[in-house]
Design a binder for these strands. Structure first.
Lengths: 146, 146
DNA sequence: CGCTTATTATAAGCATGCTTATTAAATATG
DNA sequence: CATATTTAATAAGCATGCTTATAATAAGCG
């Protein structure tokens, strides 16, 4: 097997393992009534509240319009709140509500389970190495959006 | 940073780099009028023709019904053909047409470019290592669909 | 053979992403 | 100040995945 074949296999492995990771989490989350798009919103808000919709969309790596519908639903269910920015009345700031806390607790637990399953049998050094190599691939692909 | 944080970052890196890989390819393919779902069909057929729709869907890791619409379109454009299986008249066998060859040539070239960009600066050993680690993650996640 | 079950493809309708166009508000510019 | 441009959010409509239901055919079994 030459280097070129290796890199082809690599693309496959990368694509495949990432898909399985998402799916593994999705399967767990679904049992708790959380779809992927929903848990992604809650997850990112848990890391930082009060972002504008556009900022949140940027972080989630979806188009702002794609977020609108999700926020509509989550707001209707009382899990998030849109608050008008007083300085710039065009935009909303997005906050989690108290009602979202139980869902977040579930999410943290599910994420932990998925990670443990994915990394099972890998030494700390191997996890570090994998992370390092992936970050280099990511940088190769993200820097040059030419 | 402890092992748990590492594994969290790892999930992020895996998710992120896989997404960038797809996107990088998509961007190139789009310039040639090929959407992801379309090139995935052609790509898999190029590896093996004459599969049943269900087999092809299995390989592509989509539901059979999701493939139906894509094949409808590709068949209409004359890039693929459905041929009735003579032994089992319920199923079709899917084949590429001559008209698909130019698109395939483009796809091969794009795939090569994307791989080279993704793996830029990685030694052959590092590519091997990355592939090995990813395959272990994949096995961890795929074996236990519990 | 005749009935039941499994398999293959499709249809209908939903979820969620996107592109493009629109509205309201802020900002820049003459 | 008035107009033009930019920005934030949304609306409309398309692409593509899914789940669930349906039709045709094959296969198993009495």
């Amino acid at each position: 097997m030459n280097a070129k074949d290796h890199s082809a296999t690599m693309s496959f492995e990368l694509h495949s393992s990432a898909r399985l990771l998402r799916r593994n989490f999705d399967r767990r989350a679904k049992e708790h009534g959380l779809s992927r798009s929903r848990w992604q919103v809650l997850w990112h808000l848990a890391q930082e509240e009060g972002m504008k919709q556009a900022e949140l969309a940027e972080r989630m790596d979806v188009a702002p319009i794609s977020l609108t519908r999700q926020l509509d639903n989550l707001e209707q269910e009382g899990l998030v709140e849109r608050q008008r920015d007083e300085q710039d009345r065009r935009c909303f700031r997005i906050y989690l509500t108290e009602a979202a806390q139980p869902a977040l607790a579930v999410l943290r637990e599910l994420a932990q389970e998925t990670r443990e399953q994915a990394m099972h049998g890998l030494s700390e050094q191997e996890v570090n190495q994998l992370q390092y190599l992936l970050s280099r691939v990511r940088q190769n692909l993200s820097c040059e959006e030419k």
